[in-house]
Design a protein around this nucleic acid. Structure first.
Length: 314
DNA sequence: GTTGAGCGTT
């Protein structure tokens, strides 16, 4: 193949730089990183959907979109959307940036009849609303009388938290939810736990979404549906940088946390594992499965894989 | 079919 270059820029409307491709038409991430230190991937605006799309990255190799690289300008991704020199900047800057990130607010005391549209209409007068939820009983669909809201701007969030709100004839309070009060403990895994997933979020959509932060090596969604997923990155720093975040995927606020299993039953599991001599995994799992009164053999396979992921074992 | 302090299907 003749020597070929793709156009890469730091930002969408900045002057692009031409980066050489390999003989097979792929582009090496290392080639990109040589010009853009700290780069972890590429994205581009799809001429069809007008959305930003991630470029497929497998083991350090960037693969062209379906119709080839073309004349599009590819934008460099940095871990968590930050450039290397910004990562190296003073910690004061980091704290300031961290502090200005918005988080979901819990809205307490909603009238039973209030809908998500009502909430959105009400809160839009304070700033751009990027997520609203009314929590409902799954069976009846009745509101539980509380919900969540997320603003684009930090200023709007502050204003909303500082006052009471008259919504559909009732006084409501907006606070930081308990889940947000304490900061998450740091971790050293390449895998993150994605909580509060909805059933309509597919593994492929998770992969597409998380690609913007770094190379994704695995996505796991338990079957049957359990409202969470695991996403594994090639780089543990990317996983660590996302820990504790609330990210919005398809309008759903998902919570990223440590993928370690909950310590409470881990201890019991370890004690139990000890009874199987030098750890015969097969018999260990069989002993667990034998206690599940599930007649459906197929589900066992799902359980095996789930257990494997939750224990983080090979 | 009810209700009114809380906390988002690990």
């Amino acid at each position: 193949m003749a020597e070929m270059y793709i156009r890469v820029a730091e930002e969408e409307n900045e002057e692009p730089m031409e980066i050489p491709s390999e003989d097979d038409g792929t582009v090496l991430l290392s080639t990109v990183a040589a010009q853009f230190p700290g780069a972890c991937g590429l994205r581009y605006r799809s001429p069809v959907s007008q959305c930003m799309r991630g470029v497929r990255l497998v083991e350090g190799v960037l693969h062209a979109p379906e119709n080839g690289w073309g004349n599009l300008v590819y934008v460099v991704n940095y871990p968590k959307g930050r450039k290397m020199d910004e990562i190296d900047a003073s910690s004061a800057t980091k704290i300031k940036r961290g502090d200005q990130k918005t988080s979901d607010l819990i809205v307490l005391g909603l009238p039973w009849k209030t809908t998500e549209q009502d909430l959105k209409d009400y809160f839009n007068t304070f700033g751009e609303v990027i997520m609203v939820q009314v929590k409902r009983d799954v069976k009846t669909g009745n509101s539980k009388g509380f919900g969540f809201v997320r603003f684009a701007e930090w200023e709007a969030q502050g204003k909303v938290m500082s006052q009471r709100h008259m919504i559909d004839g009732r006084w409501c309070d907006c606070k930081l939810p308990n889940s947000k009060q304490g900061p998450d403990e740091p971790m050293r895994s390449r895998k993150v736990f994605v909580g509060r997933c909805t059933e309509d979020i597919t593994a492929d959509e998770l992969r597409q979404f998380f690609m913007q932060y770094g190379e994704v090596t695995d996505v796991f969604i338990p079957k049957p549906f359990r409202a969470f997923a695991f996403v594994t990155f090639a780089d543990d720093q990317v996983a660590a940088s996302l820990c504790g975040e609330d990210l919005i995927i398809k309008g759903v606020s998902v919570h990223i946390s440590n993928a370690e299993p909950k310590h409470n039953n881990t201890r019991q599991m370890m004690e139990r594992a000890g009874r199987f001599g030098n750890g015969d995994l097969k018999y260990f799992i069989q002993s667990i499965v034998s206690e599940l009164h599930t007649p459906n053999k197929e589900m066992f396979t799902g359980f095996f894989i789930t257990i494997k992921h939750e224990l983080m074992i090979e």
